[in-house]
């Protein structure tokens, strides 16, 4: 059986919030080592890959691997029933038909428990090859979120150009054009504000801003986000989690 306790429900609430625009139904895979998920959106443009290692939980026990087929919208509704600061416990039997979600509010002495009906989710598992990326840029999540939001007011797509000078986001839409240039910088007092650019060779690719804005829902999970780009490979947008990560892959736009 599975029994997994999180000190703060906010972590799972934010994770589910950040994937629900991309994925409707998915399998949460629970194993001895932790909880993971891999799912593609219906149009096969974006893929989300989540790992929450067992050490990211206050308590974690999973005797044998369990696959939890979940409707993400339904899980979102249940998670909204708990407070951000509540202790959250997930429980499931070995061949479960429901996932038990328990919230404990120690201040109010309030315990609430909900059972989410599980479903069979027929899902292809994709092999994600190890990729040598041409460029990796780590920046504050708030900055990336702002850029994606601002440029989406002008256009549906953004061109991302990385060279040794820094990273440029630019777009050209019906009402006009915009661009933002970020240069590498290090902030010793506030390292989360640093911008780090690692580059093997310059790279320029275009991406759909609607998806980038979906990914930015994960901004509350981490202070920094890393973008990895290569050739015509999918963009990797990674947010680090306590003992894990949430990674989004986005297929680039092709040709012009």
């Amino acid at each position: 059986m599975l029994e997994a306790k999180l000190e703060q429900a906010a972590l799972l609430k934010r994770i589910v919030d950040s994937i629900r625009d991309i994925v409707q139904d998915c399998n949460f895979e629970c194993s001895e080592s932790g909880l993971s998920l891999q799912a593609m959106d219906n149009s096969h443009i974006a893929l989300v890959s989540l790992l929450l290692g067992k050490d990211g939980f206050t308590d974690y026990r999973c005797d044998r691997s369990i696959s939890l087929g979940v409707n993400v919208g339904a899980l979102t509704k249940i998670l909204k029933c708990g407070g951000n600061d509540d202790v959250l416990t997930l429980r499931a039997e070995d061949k479960p038909s429901v996932l038990s979600v328990m919230f404990e509010d120690s201040i109010q002495d309030r315990i609430s428990e909900y059972n989410l009906k599980l479903m069979d989710v027929d899902q292809e598992h994709m092999g994600i090859p190890d990729t040598e990326y041409s460029a990796s840029v780590t920046m504050p999540t708030a900055e990336f979120q702002r850029i994606a939001r601002d440029l989406h007011t002008l256009s549906d797509s953004v061109e991302i150009d990385v060279n040794k000078e820094g990273i440029t986001f630019s777009c050209d839409g019906d009402i006009g054009a915009g661009s933002i240039v970020l240069k590498p910088s290090s902030n010793i007092d506030r390292p989360e504000q640093s911008i780090n650019v690692e580059i093997v060779e310059p790279v320029t690719l275009s991406f759909n801003l609607k998806y980038l804005n979906h990914f930015c829902k994960a901004s509350g999970l981490s202070n920094q986000v890393t973008l990895r780009l290569s050739g015509e490979a999918p963009l990797l947008v990674e947010y680090k989690l306590p003992n894990g990560f949430i990674r989004f892959f986005l297929a680039p736009k092709i040709g012009d």
Partner: peptide
């Protein structure tokens, strides 16, 4: 205009 690529070509189904 650029067309939106798909992931299928990059990731193989296991």
């Amino acid at each position: 205009t650029a067309t939106q690529g798909r992931l299928d070509g990059f990731f193989k189904v296991l």
